[in-house]
Computed example of a mutant assay.
Amino acid sequence: MITIAVLEDNLLLSDRMVSILRGWDQVYSVCAFASNQAFCAHASAETVDILLADLNVEDGSGVESIAYLSKAQPESMSIVISALSDSESIVSAISSGAVGYLHKDDSSFEIVASIKTALAGESPISPAIARKLVGRLHSSAAPEKPCGAPVERTGQQILTAREIEVLNLIAKGLSYSECAAVLAISEQTVPVHVRNIYRKLHAKNRSEAVYEARFLGVIT
């Protein structure tokens, strides 16, 4: 059973999401908040497994709540549900700890299905958001060095061979159970490897881990 928090200052939308979530038999409790201050006060005292956060709330950007929860409760997960689709907002949310980003105009996403995707170790992202993110990463990538030039790869030896195998698979979008099947290891072992990968690469989620690993030359 999981606990879910909804950060949304549009009362109609907030009530709709809460109603949907309360109908899911895997949910223990759902709480709704219209401001960062109210949510952070709640998260300082209560466990939050999943945060569904808008980025435009009463007292600023929902990124504040995402960052607070990521630090206060590292095992939690945040998913953005926002009308904002500019690359700065996307990167800011993901860098702060969001594992998914759904656009409010994306009629294809379902709240429960998106949470299940996150719980399976994948990242629920609307196609339009994914394109913006890829474009941002491409534009900020460092230029290639001339052939034969020395390459600094300070993280080359950070990960073990098994961790690199796991990272390569999750970079391709495989779930934890699929990774376990491919590598013939226990499904419970995969999250352990993933946590070690995040810690060693100083990453908060899959997207950051893959980006850092590629930047360092750990994976291609």
Rank of each mutant, 00 (worst) to 15 (best):
L102G: 09
S89P: 00
L7I: 05
C40W: 01
V151E: 08
S44F: 01
G23S: 13
K204R: 14
K116E: 15
E208G: 14
A203T: 01
P150G: 00
K104T: 06
S96M: 05
I170S: 11
S107N: 09
Y101I: 01
A83V: 07
T189D: 10
A130D: 12
L13M: 11
I219H: 06
E122C: 14
L183H: 01
R214V: 07
P143Y: 03
S186R: 14
I79W: 07
S82L: 02
A98D: 06
S19M: 11
V30I: 08
F39C: 00
E163W: 04
C40P: 11
I115Y: 09
S107W: 09
A120Q: 13
N168T: 12
T117Y: 07
S61R: 13
L51F: 00
V63I: 13
S70K: 13
I115N: 08
S107Q: 14
D9V: 02
R206M: 11
S175T: 13
G97K: 14
H103M: 12
A184W: 04
P143I: 03
R22E: 14
N168I: 08
A34Y: 02
D9A: 10
L52I: 12
V166L: 00
S70C: 09
A93G: 04
W24A: 05
I2D: 03
D54T: 10
A203M: 05
Q156M: 13
P146H: 02
A5H: 12
R16Y: 15
Q188T: 15
Y101R: 06
L133W: 11
G97I: 04
S29K: 12
S108Q: 05
C31P: 07
K116Y: 07
G148D: 04
T47C: 07
A181K: 07
A213Q: 00
D86M: 07
W24D: 10
R153Q: 12
F33H: 15
V151L: 12
Q37G: 02
I90G: 08
D59S: 04
F215R: 08
Q73H: 08
H202D: 07
H42G: 01
Y101Q: 06
L119N: 04
A72G: 10
E152K: 05
I111C: 06
C147G: 01
E212I: 11
L169I: 12
I185Q: 04
S82P: 03
A34E: 14
A181E: 07
S114E: 06
H193G: 04
T3I: 03
H193C: 03
E163A: 03
S14L: 10
F33P: 07
A171P: 04
G155S: 08
A43W: 14
V80Y: 11
